[in-house]
Amino acid sequence: MTAVPTIAPTAGTATPPRREKRRSIANLERPGVFVYGILTAFILASAFPFYWSYLVASHDANVFADTVPPLLPGGNFLANASRVLDTIEFWRALGNSIVVSGTVTLSVVLLSTLAGFAFAKLRFRGRGPLLVFVIATLAVPTQLGIIPLFIVMAELGWTSSLGAVIVPNLVTAFGVFWMRQYIVDAVPDELIEAARMDGCSLIRTFWHVCLPAVRPAAAMLGIFTFMTSWNDFLWPLVALSPEDPTIQVALEKLQAGYFIDYSLVLAGTTMATVPVLIVFIVLGRQIVAGIMQGAVKG
């Protein structure tokens, strides 16, 4: 990675504040070419695997074995995509994944924010130790948990239903910790105080004061959760009914055989990335929107 000696362009080029009343540091400086250069490099590096995937997906399998891939997309993407649709139950699996990841994301964001709010702003007995406990659970390696988790799910009779992949992920320690750290500073005590003075119950205070103020953080958590859930493979493979898989489990079937047809595999992954990109764009705007549209301080 490049060493970054300067973090911002020349000081003192502050432009006068623009129309909006509350803007963050953003308007203090106009970045120079240097900043745009660094960022462009970052974006190119970020985007290249997507382009590479599409390149392979739009040619035939044989191209993958070339050391230097062709630089321009070929014309086979639609043919490869239709082979994907013929090989696996793409739409059904996609639907399942949307249900699973969507439910998990909504739930994680809501429940983590709720718990984060309690840990950050409310006083109750045992708060410190309980928070330490939550954070400590993050340090537990989960890779061996799959067998005992399956035992629990089988006892509950939940295996083979989507519940088996949804329920264990409804709220995460990661989410609680992140929202707690964000809320501590981003939600001013005065606001909560004012709401309480107006006679709001804690849950109403949470709903009307806290939730609107944490949109950027909640959106980050949302993207993170959605992606983790979307990419999960081994647990859905084990826990779900073979007729009703999630998209990653279904896509794995494209890798059958000793010779893996990478143009087919990457066509499948490219197709499955589209819904993710949509979620990403929707939630991404929330992050960018910043807090000024939410609760207003002072």
Partner: peptide
């Protein structure tokens, strides 16, 4: 720009 730097995170692990 902001969403661009997050792109790697949505890439599929298989890819």
């Amino acid at each position: 720009w902001r969403m661009g730097v997050l792109l790697p995170y949505v890439a599929s692990l298989v890819a």
